[in-house]
């Protein structure tokens, strides 16, 4: 069964781009357009990995990450930060990796493969 990646980003172009990259490489995807809705998607979809934007209209990425890590059932899910903000690698110190937009798709895929196979 294909590993599932949850894409959390408010930019529909980025979501589509990431969906294409991941689906072309054999992963299943699901999405949330804001941190506020993302926990519901985590509960319903049970992803194996999450890509997380930082700045979103209602709830920012670090706030979602805090909620995720405070839920024992989902706190183990690896997170990759993908954001346009400078200094984003310090936003979530326990993230598997941080990428600044525009990012290298091969680098991203390499990290995803290393993390969930």
């Amino acid at each position: 069964m294909a590993k599932k990646i949850l894409i959390i980003d408010d930019d529909p172009n980025i979501v589509t781009y990431l969906e294409d990259i991941f689906q072309d490489n054999g992963y299943a995807t699901c999405k949330a357009t804001d941190g506020a809705d993302a926990m519901d998607v985590v509960r319903s979809e049970r992803p194996d990995l999450i890509t997380l934007d930082l700045e979103m209209p209602k709830e920012w990425g670090p706030r979602f990450y805090r909620a995720l890590t405070q839920d024992e059932e989902f706190s183990h899910i690896p997170v990759i930060v993908i954001s346009g903000l400078a200094g984003n690698k310090y936003a979530i110190p326990k993230a598997v990796a941080s990428f600044t937009k525009p990012f290298d798709r091969d680098e991203l895929l390499k990290v995803v493969k290393e993390t969930i196979g």
Binding site: M56, E59, W60, G61, R63, L85, A86, G87, Y90
Partner: peptide
């Protein structure tokens, strides 16, 4: 001070 200090969006903790 640090950019990382500005990524929270509101105060709850």
């Amino acid at each position: 001070n640090r950019p990382a200090a500005s990524f929270w969006g509101g105060f709850s903790t």
